[in-house]
């Protein structure tokens, strides 16, 4: 794939060693093209979060490599050297742990804006408020500490913080699983808008509804390996692998849709 923005080749991650070793990710290859949204689905413990962390530069793989452009991101020392670091950002699953509890939403975002833009203090505050406003966070809520915000609001603050680095890829690890339905819809609409602006998104989820709504390609993961991949629509309409069939069959209310069609 020449137009792939990021590409993982035969990535393996093993935790522990000896007889207790857990092979979280086994020989996985994937790519994400510019401006597209891919999904990674699988049940809990299938290794999808680990894979997301590998892509984000937080988990060094034991084997294989991750290429950003033509360059391997895990060179000696830290992952993503220089300016590349900011181009891949991540939104985490747990909205309660993803923001520093001691500083306000505004300070969290302003720190990132200031860091990446070399703005003055007042300028970065203005830009942060603007960014938070786009995420649907009012000026009033921006002045609050994380514990005073709802789960959905916290996730949107996390997105704002990630966007302040002007990334090309946003990796979202189960961003909707810990927040309520209406907040989920709000966040997904936000992602849809970002896709329209040219951002690439890798969405990790066990929620097939979310994957179907947002992504155009999907990878199905089981026990650390991909069992099936392809265009989201095709995979959903015509699953090949028994595990994928089982996953799709387990979507609540799906038989009702099927009866109507």
């Amino acid at each position: 794939m020449s137009d792939a923005l990021i590409e993982a080749r035969q990535v393996c991650v093993t935790f522990g060693s000896g007889s207790r070793a857990v092979r979280a990710v086994r020989d996985v290859s994937l790519h994400i093209n510019a401006g597209e949204a891919i999904g990674i689905v699988g049940e809990s413990g299938s290794g999808k979060s680990t894979l997301a962390r590998v892509l984000a530069g937080l988990q060094r793989p034991d084997q294989g490599e991750v290429l950003f452009g033509d360059e391997s991101i895990y060179q000696r020392g830290r992952a993503y050297r220089g300016d590349k670091r900011r181009l891949v950002q991540m939104v985490f699953q747990d909205p309660y742990g993803s923001l520093n509890p001691r500083i306000t939403a505004l300070s969290t975002v302003a720190e990132a804006v200031k860091f990446h833009g070399e703005h003055s203090r007042s300028e970065s505050h203005r830009l942060s408020l603007e960014l938070l406003g786009q995420m649907g966070i009012s000026e009033r809520d921006a002045a609050k500490k994380p514990r005073q915000l709802s789960g959905g609001q916290r996730q949107r603050v996390s997105v704002a913080r990630a966007l302040s680095a002007h990334p090309e890829i946003l990796i979202a690890d189960e961003p909707t699983s810990a927040i309520d339905q209406s907040a989920q819809a709000q966040l997904l609409n936000l992602f849809q808008g970002l896709l329209g602006d040219g951002l690439s998104i890798a969405l990790v989820s066990h929620d097939l509804g979310v994957i179907r709504y947002l992504t155009n390609r999907v990878y199905v993961m089981k026990d650390g390996a991909f069992v099936e991949s392809g265009l989201t629509q095709e995979v959903f309409e015509n699953p090949q692998h028994a595990y994928t069939k089982q996953l799709i069959a387990s979507i609540p209310g799906r038989h009702l849709q099927g009866a109507g069609a």
């Binding site: 530069g57 937080l58 891949v88 985490f92 699953q93 742990g97 860091f115 996390s158 990630a162």
Partner: peptide
């Protein structure tokens, strides 16, 4: 915690 990892990805 996520905020430490986020700080790492932010560089």
């Amino acid at each position: 915690q996520g905020y430490i990892e986020a700080a790492q990805t932010l560089g």
